[in-house]
Every structure is written in structure tokens, then in C-alpha cells.
Computed example of a mutant assay.
Amino acid sequence: MSATPLDTDTQAAPTIVRPDVPDSDWNDWHWHMRRRITNVDKARQWINLSPEEEQAIAGVAGRYRWSVTPYYASLMDPDDPQCPVRQQAVPAGGELVEFSGAEVDPVGDTYYRKTNRVVHKYPDRVILLVTEACPVYCRHCTRKFHTTDVNGTYFRDDEGESFDEDLRYIAEHPEIRDVLLTGGDPLSYRDGKLEEIIAGLRAIPSVEIIRIGSRFPVLLPQRITDDLCEMLARHHPVWVNTHFNHPKEITPEASAAVDRMLRHGIPVGNQTVLLRGINDDVATMRTLMTELLRIRVRPYYLYHCDNVTGVSHFMTSVAKGWEIMEGLQGHITGFGVPQYVLTTRLGKIPIARPYFTVTPDGLRLRNHKGEEMLVDNAVYPITEADAR
């Protein structure tokens, strides 16, 4: 496949390489989906595979699916296996290593599943597992079993089964006011099918907010069409949370996709996963967060990588997460600092180090420079009993 360089105007993304095809094809998300990279021969058209990568691709066969869109492949360094985009998309030997404590479902999706698709973990909100399909099977996926194990899925029945049972469950639980469509990636569905699901939720009076978790803005931003945005806007309030993990992913195409959603009144948040060798340093994370703000995406969560079977090699220590949070707090604007969380069967648990210590004399406070001060209990009472 011949390729030509494509200059970008973003500060974070370097020159990328795309195939020499008409813009009408490159800008058509269906073209990319039909031409996904799913084997060694196709991958060689984009990158110079290392022997370790070829061995890993052979090793995951029959165990974990993998595919890469041509768009996302165009962001890969063709010569560097440590490229942060390449590591997220191309199988690696670590996926086949057994790690202590690793589980298929450490966050408890299957434990809280109430119907074929509904997972009811929190009092007022549920997730709806729409599909197991993704444009790119991210190697760090927390639902690796559901989305990438050839012989496994969270679904009790086929994903093509009726949604009636799922919608009925939500309607019969009026405490549910917030529904997150996830999967897999819900935007893998055509607009018409997706609207059927959303309209079914909108018909339930107690459902106030519909959210969509999608990595299409990162992996294939051409999917974010005006038609899609217009459809979503018909069912407001609709929110989208996406998943940028590295500044290299913030390209003109991704920025344009975000802009289309925002212009249709769809707020966009970001959930980054802390990944060893990809974004586990302060400089990279600061750049990522500031670049997200530049394209008007609100940093939401920084997830500690889950100890998921086939994913554990991406985990860092919690101390590394603390170091990065310390490097963000006070160094970039407050709403650019995500919440550092560990996802467990108890829920998402904030695990950032506190900037205060309770002492007998009051609160000892610490700022981003490490400077400390004591706030007397008489000034800011710690307990209600001491409050004026």
C-alpha cells in the first residue's frame, strides 16, 4: 500500500501516514470498518512488525480478537514497537502471561448483571451492554473477556436478541435516572438501530440522562458524522464519554469529531487509563490533559489500570498514579485534573492522596509545591459539634 505523509495542525500529533486513497474513502467510516487490519499480512502494510509482535499475534489467535482501523494504524510509528498507539492496538506477549490476582471481571459487571444487557451497580444508574463489537480491540480493555475473547462474552443471550427485557427492567425501577450505553462500542451500530435503543430509553419517564461510552472519536473519528450528531441531539440530554490515552491521538480528525458533537449540544468527557509505557509519566499526562482542554474535552477520570486477565502487564503501581496526580494538581487548571480512581466491585473508589491531615489542632494543609500550613480548628471547625 503506497502512503503519503499528512501534515497536521495540532501541537500534540506528529506527521502521520495515510494510504494514497481519495478523501471520499478516507473520510468514510464504513471504508475503514471494511478494511480493518486483522492479520499479519495486513499489519505489514502499515508497520514493520517485530518478531515479538508476530509471535504475540499468533499466540492470541483463538483467544483474543484483534483489529485496527486504517485511521488508527496511520497514527502508529511504523518502526517503533514502543509507539504508544501501537502498544494499545497490536497484541503483545504480556497478554499471555499469568499475573497474580488477575481476574476476567474484577469490576463486577457479571455480578451486578440483571438482564442480558443491564448491569445495575449504583442506585440511580445502570449500564446497558449494547454490543461486544469494537472498531479496534484495545489491548488494555477492562472488558477483554466480553469484547475480545473469541469464546466468551458477558451476554447471557445473543446480543442480537430483543431489548424488551432490558428496557422493561429499567422502566420497572424508577430510581434509575441515568443510563450509560457501552459494550463493546455502541457506535458500532448503524444510526437507525442506535436510535431505536435510545428512543426506547427516552420513552421511560424516569430516565433523565443518556450517556454513550465510545472510543470512536479516538479510533475512527470519521464515525462522528453530522447525521449521527443530529440523531443524538433529538434525544437530549445525551452525553458522550470517550477515551484518549495519549497526546498522539489528538489529531485534526479527532478534534473535528469532538467539535461536531459540541456544536450539537453533546458534552464530551474523557476517561484516561493509566498505562505502563504509554502515559505513565507526568509530562505526557500534563500534555494530554491540556490538549484535551484545547479541543474542549473535559478530563473526567484517570483510571488505575484494572488487574484484568490479559491486561495486567499495563498496570503501574498506585504510587506512580499518585506521582502523576501530584504533577497535575496545581500545575494545570483545576477542571483539567481528572479524578484518580480504582474500579472495584464496590464501585469507583477515589484513591488520590489527600492534601490535608486532621490533627488535634486543626487541618494541616499542603499545596502542589509541598508547602504546608495549619488551619486552626477555631477558624475552620472539623466537626459539627465545634461549628459556630
Rank of each mutant, 00 (worst) to 15 (best):
M1P: 03
P5C: 09
D7W: 12
T8A: 08
Q11Y: 11
A13C: 14
P14Y: 13
I16V: 11
V17C: 13
R18A: 07
P19R: 15
P19D: 08
P22Q: 11
H32M: 09
M33Y: 04
M33R: 12
R34S: 06
R34A: 11
R34L: 13
R35S: 09
R36C: 06
D41V: 15
K42R: 14
Q45W: 06
S50G: 03
E54W: 07
Q55K: 14
Q55T: 12
Q55C: 07
A56M: 05
G59M: 03
G59P: 00
Y64P: 00
A73E: 05
P78D: 01
Q82P: 04
V85M: 11
V85F: 15
P91D: 04
G93I: 15
G94S: 04
E95T: 05
E98V: 15
F99C: 14
G101C: 08
D105C: 03
D109W: 01
D109L: 09
T110I: 15
R113E: 05
K121N: 07
R125P: 01
L129H: 05
H146R: 10
T147F: 02
D149W: 14
G152M: 11
G152R: 14
D158G: 15
E161K: 14
E161F: 10
F163Q: 02
D166H: 08
D166M: 13
L167I: 12
I170V: 15
A171V: 09
I176S: 10
R177H: 12
D178S: 08
L181P: 00
G183M: 03
D185T: 03
D185S: 01
G192W: 00
G192A: 05
K193Y: 05
L201C: 00
A203Y: 03
I209K: 10
I209N: 08
I209L: 15
I209C: 07
I210T: 15
S214T: 15
V218Y: 10
L220N: 13
I224H: 01
I224R: 02
H236E: 12
P237W: 09
V238W: 01
K248C: 08
E253N: 07
A254R: 10
S255L: 10
A256G: 01
A256L: 01
A257E: 04
Q271Y: 09
Q271F: 09
Q271A: 13
V273H: 04
L275F: 06
L275V: 05
T284I: 15
T284V: 12
M285T: 11
M289W: 02
M289N: 04
L293P: 00
R296F: 08
V297Y: 07
R298C: 09
L302M: 06
Y303D: 01
Y303N: 02
Y303A: 01
H304G: 01
C305I: 06
N307Y: 10
G310R: 01
G310W: 00
S312R: 08
M315S: 09
V318P: 02
M325T: 14
L328Q: 07
I332D: 07
G336Y: 10
Q339S: 10
I349S: 06
I351R: 05
P354I: 07
V358S: 04
V358F: 02
T359H: 02
T359M: 04
G362F: 02
K369V: 06
K369A: 08
E371F: 06
L374F: 02
E384N: 12
D386Q: 12
D386R: 08
